[in-house]
Amino acid sequence: MDCMETRTLLGSYLDRELDRKSVIAVGRHLDGCGECKRMFDLHSSITSAIRKRATYHPASASLANRIRAQIAQAAIRPENSRPPRVTRPLWNRWLQLGSAVAAAVIITSIATTQLASNSGNQMIAEQIINGHSRAILTSHQIDVASSDQHTVKPWLSSKLDFSPTVADLTTAGFPLRGGRLDYVDNRPVAVLVYGHRQHVIDLFIWPDDGVTDRSRTRSFSKRGLNVLHWSAAGMTHWAVSDLNSADLETFAERYASSK
C-alpha cells in the first residue's frame, strides 16, 4: 500500500471501519512511513480532543417533562386543530396509546414500567376476548340463567372467594341474563352476562391485586370486539362485547354508578 492509498484510508482506519485485510495493510505502511504515521497521529489527536473536550449537551429535565406531556397530549387528542370526531373507534385510540408508549420509550425510555403494565393488560385483554369468544362459540355463555340479581350473586359467591356486585341495569337498557365462571390471569373469576338489544356483554370481575393500574379506564379492541377495563371498589372489571364502543362505555358508566 502506498502513501496516497494510506492517507485516503487513514480516517476509516482510525474509526475502525476498515476490513481486516486493509487494517493490516495500513498498519504495515504506518510502521514503515514516518510521514504517514505523523498524519495518523494528527488525526487521532484531533479525534481525542473532540471526544474529551467538546461539550456534550444533554437534554434538561424540563425539556424531558415537556416532551412527555406533549406526547401524552398528542395521544389523547391526535388532531389538535380539528374538533374531536365523535365516532373515533376504540381500536384507534388504543393504537394511539400504544404508539405514544413506543415513542416515549424510544425518546426517553421512561415508560418501561408503564409498558410492562400495558403489556400485562394486553395479555389479560387477550384472555378476556378469548373467554368471551369461547363462551359464544360453545354456546356456554351462562352457568346460572336469571334476570334476578339476587339469584346470580349468591350463586357466584358460593363458587368464588369473593362476592361481585350484581347490578340491575334493566331500566338503563342492559337487562341481566345470568352469570358464569371463567378463568383469567390464573384465577377463577366471575362473569356477569348482560344483554343490550341483540348484543351480549360479558363483564369479568375479580379482586384487585393492588398492582393493577387503577387510574383510568382503558380500552382495547380486537376481532371486532371492544374491551373496557377499569378498577373500582377493590375489584378489577373487564367488559367485552361486540357492542359499539360508545354503548359499551355507557354500560360501564351505568354499572359503576349503580353501587
Binding site: 456534550y56 449537551h57 437534554a59 434538561s60 425539556l63
Partner: peptide, 27 residues
C-alpha cells in the same frame, strides 16, 4: 433518557443555540 440526550446534543450542535435546540427536539 439516553436517546433524548443524544437528540438534544445533536440538535444543539446543529442549531448552536440552546433555545432553538430545545424547540427542534420538541418538534
Amino acid at each position: 433518557m439516553a436517546h433524548l440526550n443524544a437528540a438534544h446534543n445533536f440538535a444543539y450542535w446543529l442549531a448552536r443555540d440552546p433555545r432553538n435546540a430545545e424547540d427542534i427536539v420538541q418538534e
